[in-house]
Amino acid sequence: MGELDLGMVNWARAQFTLTAMYHWLFVPITLGLSFLCAFFETIYVRTGKEEWKRLTKFWMTLFGINFAIGVATGIILEFEFGTNWSNYSWMVGDIFGAPLAIEGIFAFFIEATFFAVMFFGWERTSKGFHLFSTWMVAIGSNLSALWILVANSWMQYPVGMVFNPDTARFEMQNIWEVILSPVAVAKFTHTTSSSFVVGSLFVIAVSSYYLLKKRHIDMAKKSILVASVFGLLSGLFTAFTGDESAFVNASTQPMKLAAYEGLYKGSRGADIVAFGMLTPGKRTGDGQEPFAFEISIPRGLALLATREWNGFVPGIEDLVYGNSAEGLVGAADMIERGKKAIVDLAAYKAARKAGDDAAGKAALERFNVNKDYLGYGYMTRPEEIVPPVASTYYSFHYMVYVGTFIIFLMLFFLKAGLSDRLAENRLLLRLGVASFFLAYLASELGWVVAEVGRQPWAIQDMLPVKMAATNIGSGHVQGTFLLFFILFAVLLLAEIKIMIKQIKIGPEVA
């Protein structure tokens, strides 16, 4: 496996970034609004009041507009694994492909089937079956997210598999280890509950717009009351699962944790930086102070990462250069062992080809000693294992700040709703509209933390991104990048236009 054209790798990265972040414009609303539609329709079926039916159909219309483009962009993402990341697909397709296939033939089929009933079955099916269909769309959407997040979690924490030296592929050994890995469970609960917050804020933003315009006042108040309860509880659950995700990161991806916390030098009882600006131009091992200024909470990071006041949290430089006092091996040693593994694997293949069983057996034994470091063998220097720190650090902190702010915002909306003072609190309503966009950005930046923080690995500690791409010229990807960019821009403008038009029409004729 020779090294690939870095220009191609970066264009493939750019295309995946564009497609994934565009796809994620639609997913959080699908995950959150689907459950809110199920809540609204359940209330309609229980009360039999037409106003709840009208309200449900209105939010379902907006859900449908959003859903259509979300599906289309998700399909493009899956194809990119084949077109742009064929080395990746070759090496780990047996494992990575399984949850993606389950998502398609199981979860998405549930969504798609019941989506049709939900939209076109109001007059054709019984109330009970229609309600069941709406719940199945919500459950199916979230099950879709589960399988995709299981696949992503395996990239962050590869478990349940074994490397086959004969084919140079990773093969699945235990699917339950993959599905129930601590990273997968934390990621699924954190990602979906944060999407419930975004979905709730979407309902609050549109309803706030109506209250500011003094239209559909009763419907807007009802919607805000339900959405603020769901948003508040989901926001609190998101904070809880976010904390658990960081704790899991400490053992599975310590470099990512160090990057998003801006921790260069590890220590026992490490402080956590609540507010801080990184020193511009800071490089690993350059001796500069990591922060231009900072406000820290004593021992906060030790408590977060180890659940102990005096626990050791490794910093970026401990992981790169090693820390003998804490038993950490530096990256230079791992790179050396990785290079030996590459040589021994090549020797094993050559011996097999020549029919020399004795030499093959000896090479395989040598390979097995260092096989866990195979991915490191493709690194050229220890500092290469450090992800882009600034983008990871700032994305993480923005996400935490906005997540905390949204919890308080939900509380204020709930309080105003309970005391029937929503319509007169115009500042809160304006905040409700604006905060939707803040939360959207926080949701996108959560993925920046997850994916940029994993760099330079496609699969943590096993396969570097630079070895995962397809060996073609970058011109191929540049062309489709431009095509997707134009297509996405046109689709987004069309979607926003249709969405705004439908919101302006409102619930009467929806």
């Binding site: 469970v185 108040k221 659950f237």
Partner: peptide
């Protein structure tokens, strides 16, 4: 923790619905 997170996730949806209905009744908005 796996069980806590997964049961918590289901409880989040059930409790959200029940709390929303209770508050709609309380505020005479149902």
């Amino acid at each position: 923790m796996t069980a806590v997170l997964l049961i918590g996730w289901i409880a989040l949806i059930v409790v959200s619905y029940k709390a929303a209905v209770a508050l709609l009744i309380k505020t005479n908005n149902l």
